[in-house]
Nucleic acid binder design. Sequence first.
RNA 1: GCCGGAGUGGCGGAACGGUAGACGCAGCAGACUCAAAAUCUGCCGAGGGCAACCUCGUGGGGGUUCGAUUCCCUCCUCCGGCACCA
Length: 842
Amino acid sequence: MQEEYPFRDIEPRWQRHWREAGAFRADAGDTSRKFYCLMMFPYPSSALHVGHGRNYIIGDAVARYKKMRGANVLTPMGWDAFGLPAENAAIKSGVPPRDSTFRNIATMKRQLEAWGVCYDWDREVTSCKPDYYRWTQWFFLKFLERGLAYKGKAAVNWCPSCATVLANEQVVNGLCERCDSRVVARQLEQWFFRTTQYAQRLLDDLSLLDGWPERVRTMQANWIGRSEGTRMDFALVPREDGAADPCAGVPCFTTRVDTIYGCTYMVMAPEHPHLKALVANLPQEREVREFIARASTESSLERASESLEKRGVFTGRRVINPYNGAAIPLWVSDYVLMEYGTGAVMAVPAHDTRDWAFAKKYGLPISISIQNPARSLRLEDMTDAYAEDGVVVDSGPFSGLHNREAIPRMTAWAAEKGFGGPMVHYRLRDWLISRQRYWGAPIPVIHCQACGVVPVPEKDLPVLLPENVEFRPTGESPLARCPAFMNVPCPRCGRPARRESDTMDTFVDSSWYFLRYLTPRLENAPLDRRVCDAWMPVDQYIGGIEHAILHLLYARFFTKVLCDMGLIGFSEPFAHLFTQGMICKRSEKDGLLYKMSKSKGNVVSPDRLIAQYGADTVRLYTLFLGPPEKDAEWDDRGIEGAHRFLRRVWRRVYENRDALRAARGLRPDPDAMDAAERDLHRKTHETIRQVTRDMEGAFHFNSAIARIMELVNAMDACGPAADGGAQRKAVYRAAAETVVLLISPFAPHVAEELWVQLGHAPGILAADWPAADHAALSRDEVEIVVQVNGKVRGRVTLPADAGRAAVERAALDVPGVRKHLEGRTVRKVVVVPGRLVSIATG
RNA sequence: GCCGGAGUGGCGGAACGGUAGACGCAGCAGACUCAAAAUCUGCCGAGGGCAACCUCGUGGGGGUUCGAUUCCCUCCUCCGGCACCA
């Protein structure tokens, strides 16, 4: 054994040991004590930085801890390997996406290994490999069969500068994430998954996810955005010229039907499908068409900007308020959105702020139909809409009701009269999965002149991505310019046909990878239900908060669909979710804190730090930074402290090697200990208790590590002399072994090495996690704090079993306490056994 | 605007309603050393006092309690999510 901590020698050696021993290979057969520990699989972008590391280090610590607790742990890893960055790199550098992706995978795999993070690599999955995306395509076909996949026209995010569509998450505040150009809407034929069909179940089942952070559940609930209200049809006043209309009426949705008697006009979105027909050949047609044209050129950012005054024009048409029969004007304005509700709203300026502003601007009538509790609302005093609750007034048979009471009654009335009724609306929209991009799973359908959209027969899967494709960004999928790919006979009629050139959103790939890990090499099916049902749900899922909505919602949706199809027997994929905070780093330029990322140029590579300090130091520091669910600031100086600590642990074992060896087999005997030994013995077991609590609870590894540091500090106060007593050695050895065991999930290499140095067989993962001995936690004497009027005025040491009366008597007798009681009468004494006495004076 | 989360030393952060600041970083002093590094020891919220000690202190204000960083009300600030949502 060397005096200096030889991490450069230890770490590669143990990494090889774990790999060769298959230390992380799960026992596929026995799932009675199964623990599926999953980390979100990464996108293989160039290389990992220490910010990424947090995710893997947390997961590895959990997996190691669970193994020591005797669980059959499954920790697989794979690659979310399709995606835009590889393709953009190909446009820039000419390196094919496949090449750069596999090169990046090799780099990241090496980095993970150097970190000492272990996986069952036999189960590795790579979403861009045909044996994986074949099944992604298969799921698409199954969705298509069940009517859950469909093609429809939709507005997509279009970046004019990159000449491509962007995913929602690539649009930041209306700007392209990469080039900061304004994103505009474009109408394109797109493929969708019908997520809206599952909106209610996705919402309801959130209540089953009590192992999820509350905030993630809240975010999902907000995203689904269930809103209960009323639907009603406004009949059109027929045209004077007698011309026919495309529809009999205009449906609209409201959550405030109680205000309907105050409705003085109606507003349509510029994109409303019937709008142009409604104004055909009217004097207003020209103005309306100009308005529509102008609205269509605006970016969503411009349209949504609060500062922009809402504009609108009168359509020349009127509609009938179904409640009171009033004919009211129909306007078109950009403050109404086609994508929410029905694309038309009833406007109640007296009780809606936006309607108020619009009515004021265009001189539209305003009419009060809800009174405040004081019944003091007067139109001439109002400076804004009254949107609060109140009493319904001037509303026919509903006048006099409280507005909250009126809502169900008025809704029922709509149903009774047949012009509307209750309606539930969701903010959630169908999932747009088309991408006009090359580096994704091709959508497996064929377009035939005669037969229309024809699914690729299952036996022809996978639809392979062609190689040697040109990547010029033109807005059309690169696949469309690849004749060898595009031209195929129609599977139905045999005539020449063309393949779909869009590929699938990469979130489709990541919606089922956790199932593929369970039978990664299965050839005739994507999964095996028996194996899935035995291992699922994932016991602990660990990933970044940035996936709180998209990935986690899509994966839940997929799981429910697969469950409905009978492919699996459970409907929620992730029982416990842990979302770690981001690692940030202060910018050298402006001194501000930014998320560590390549684009911000503030990344810290693990490679150099591991070379200089070792993986255990980097791991320990990463976990010690702060509570893992919170963002943390990376400061290179702090890493010295972690290294110093490991060096100290190493040296303590080295310095005391003779005593430690001599104590093998000796058991600490509380009856034979002196006071210092008993303190260390107690500290050892207190540390076990506290660290175990941190591991089981909120994963507060930072405080777990602090506890272990305290134990090492305590060991220094009770060092064993080479010729010292047997008890001293035994207690010290027990403390040292405890440190090694407790530190092993965080700093596994040094723990493995010291475990062997302490005379154990290699393989600390097979050792039992220590258990706290309650007898060791007890004390003969306790220090009691004495408070007078809430302030600490003294302490007294008493036998632990002293009775209340004795404690109180002793407390009142402490000199510092007596001083503060002089001239006062004791009003009340509270005794907290073993802790304190609180005295209140009159 | 709505919904979450958070405000504690110079810094990261600890504290089942019970001694606020554990643990670490940075800093200061000392030991060892020719010297430095490493290591070890001590100090390290603010103010007052020769000292024993005293006062203040967990974003502000109020409340519950013998006792509040912790529970309740209210306000302020910051961060995150959603947002012309009808």
